[in-house]
Amino acid sequence: MTPEQIRHSLLSWYDAHARDLPWRTGPAAGQVGVRSDPYRVWLSEVMLQQTTVPHAAPYFLKFTARWPTVSDLAAAPDDEVMAAWAGLGYYARARNLLACARAVANDHGGVFPDTEAVLRALPGLGPYTAAAVAAIAFDEATNVVDGNVERVMARLFAVETPLPAAKPELKALAAALVRDGRSGDWAQALMDLGATICRPKSPLCDRCPLTAACAGLASGAPETYPRKTAKAARPHRHGVAYILTRGEEVALVRRPPKGLLGGMLGLPTSDWRPAPWSDADALAQAPASAERGAGEVEHVFTHFSLTLRLLRADGEAEGLIWTARRDLDALPSVFLKAARAGLSNLL
């Protein structure tokens, strides 16, 4: 198949099978080629980084109901946005979200720039997000390449170079298929094909519109693409979290603005380090007199896994934020998990 035949086949498939997503206009809504609201495109793309569609969709609906425009979001207090983001993870995204919204509101009159180059200059917008907003919202012929698109290219052209070294090659192959016209639909068609048909495991090749062109399928083992370099073992860290209660209230702290979970509320903790904490060291860092152990929890971040030992502590201490137990659901998942485990052991 020629590039033009590949585009025609995939866009025809997309017109019939596009996913119906809350941030999307297009074929699923009977609006072929209709452009989407750049605010909704941008917000969805930020939320979908390292997050699945089913998990992100409820957050997207809540955000757009509460802050329907980028200017509304820009005017929101940091604490409210960070609390609304809790549970989506990767909290640097929420800080970048606010920085970008405020730049659009303050420097661009509340209107998103309509080219990839200017979008790229906004804080927190990497190459992929800028290309996606430019294509989907403004129909610019940009090269939108995420993990789904990389997988489609690797299989379509049977790329033998393993990831991550293959990324430039895969991006170049995708760029060769970009054309003027229906740029947003093309980008979303590739994403949908990767998400629903050309899946990481058990690809549904019998339903794919590009089987005639797929070198990976012709090899007899399309699921083995993209080739991957063996991953290094994820390091493990240890920490101590302190469960300090006062009646029906639990003590929290505000984490430093930068770093992992920066600016979020969380339980008081020790540092997180490679070696387990001794009893003496764990007690020495307690915000109040520690009474007894309350178990431990395990949590996995992108770059390391964590064992949090839980210690029950009681009494007053300075610099704490007392929060009702019923309001703990807004905590990041690692602290919510630890709080639930520690409090359940107190019943």
Rank of each mutant, 00 (worst) to 15 (best):
G89L: 04
L177Q: 05
R151Q: 05
A57V: 14
L170Y: 12
P162C: 10
V111C: 03
L173Y: 01
H236K: 07
E150L: 14
W67K: 04
A65F: 07
R292V: 02
S202G: 07
Q188C: 05
H303K: 06
A99H: 11
V34E: 14
P113S: 01
V81K: 15
A175E: 13
R254T: 15
L252G: 14
P257W: 04
V149E: 03
S333Y: 03
L311S: 11
P68R: 08
G181F: 07
S219A: 09
T142P: 14
D314N: 10
A141K: 08
A286E: 00
W272R: 06
I6S: 08
T224W: 08
A117M: 08
R95Q: 11
V240F: 00
V70Y: 13
E116H: 03
P235E: 05
A134Y: 06
F335V: 12
I136A: 10
E296T: 11
S202P: 03
D279A: 10
A176T: 03
A338V: 10
V46F: 04
G315R: 00
P77G: 13
R340Y: 05
T161C: 09
A84H: 10
D314K: 14
R155M: 05
D78A: 09
V334A: 14
F60W: 13
I136V: 15
A74G: 05
E80N: 04
R102E: 08
K337V: 10
R325L: 09
A230V: 12
D20C: 04
G342N: 06
W23D: 01
A341F: 02
A18I: 12
R237N: 01
M82I: 10
A18Y: 01
S278V: 00
F304N: 11
A286C: 08
C205G: 09
G262S: 12
L210D: 06
T224I: 04
R93I: 04
V149S: 07
V152L: 09
T115D: 08
D279N: 12
L336D: 07
A187W: 04
V144F: 07
V145L: 03
T142G: 13
P77W: 07
F60S: 15
R255V: 08
P200K: 02
S270T: 06
W322G: 12
L97W: 14
V144L: 06
D327C: 11
P276I: 00
C198K: 03
V149Q: 05
C208R: 04
L217S: 01
K201D: 01
L343W: 11
E223C: 03
N96V: 02
R237E: 08
P113M: 12
L308G: 11
P276W: 01
D139N: 10
H299T: 01
A284S: 08
N148H: 05
Y242D: 07
L170V: 06
D192H: 06
G295V: 02
S305W: 00
L244V: 15
T302E: 10
N345E: 13
A86E: 13
G89P: 15
H8N: 05
V300S: 15
D114L: 02
A288L: 11
A294L: 08
A75Y: 10
T52K: 13
E169P: 03
A135P: 01
D37S: 14
V159K: 05
R120G: 05
M264W: 13
L204D: 06
L346K: 08
T307Q: 11
P274H: 05
A134P: 11
A74D: 14
W85Q: 09
G262K: 13
K337S: 15
G220Q: 00
